[in-house]
Design a protein around this nucleic acid. Sequence first.
DNA 1: TGACAATGACAGCCTAGGCAACTAATGTAC
DNA 2: GTACATTAGTTGCCTAGGCTGTCATTGTCA
Lengths: 157, 157
Amino acid sequence: MSEIYDIETYEPRRGVGYLINRVKAEMLAVVDRELTADDQLGPLEVSSAQFVILATLSSGGQKSASDLCKGISYDAGAMTRMIDRLEDKGLLQRTRSPEDRRLVYLELTDAGKAAFPRMREISLRVLNRFLRGFSKAEARQLEAYLLRMLENAPSGA
Amino acid sequence: MSEIYDIETYEPRRGVGYLINRVKAEMLAVVDRELTADDQLGPLEVSSAQFVILATLSSGGQKSASDLCKGISYDAGAMTRMIDRLEDKGLLQRTRSPEDRRLVYLELTDAGKAAFPRMREISLRVLNRFLRGFSKAEARQLEAYLLRMLENAPSGA
DNA sequence: TGACAATGACAGCCTAGGCAACTAATGTAC
DNA sequence: GTACATTAGTTGCCTAGGCTGTCATTGTCA
């Protein structure tokens, strides 16, 4: 069975890799703009990267920092600094586990819980805007394609 | 016409935005690993981000730094520093235009031209690996979906 | 129990991108 | 021709992620 791209005709600038790169960059840029322009969230100066962490944290129960890292293939050093920033903004709280003192449990503060729905709404709106013209079936198919690519990654999923 | 994601059921962690993020990160990580592990390219310490610039530069007659930035929605400041790194590695060359002395023309050096085919080969191989199990028709459809999303971006394409 | 491995969080150094301020060169309007 | 605007490139400051090494804590095994 022949490969998708072959060495004679492959143009990096037109391939799936390049396109995914571009779409990701454009989408995050729009989310960042909307977050800073929002009346409620603007003063918090929350970025799209920070929203990803809060979203992962808010879905699912009590989580340690390392659980969060494993779940999204995130670097532990980057996570430490990200938590610092979110803690400074008062959106998130660290708690040392008494059972295993190596673990740091993470929890949204009341301010974090209050701000999250609005962030979720903004990310939803931007996503829908990028999917303008898509039927629901097409969107589901796109999700399925991306999932299959993720499963082809060395880390599995 | 109803939207793709609706406010009641939307879960950021499962949407297209999150998936694109993940796929992009996993793909670039693999390309980076392959680039550093390669016998020919390893010593150059070329990153996937640097490859993107070289690929854009080597395809088509676009030459100046700002042309490059516009073509891929790239920040001008980031571009300056990227060119610095690529020039340090001897893969790329700056030339001031004599007609318009504001412009900086970019060109691959002989070393850059020599290294590029191997980079292209590696990025092709990684891309094919992530598309394992895809038919060619599915891959073309995925490309089409991503292009449509790009066209929905505020910057147009 | 004591040596050693494994784990979780963290700090330092690197590449990297976005934004704002600045400089030099060019274009435009009066 | 001078004043102003625009454009290209650069620089500084910020967030951000990857990698390596370090430290404290926990688990394992002889």
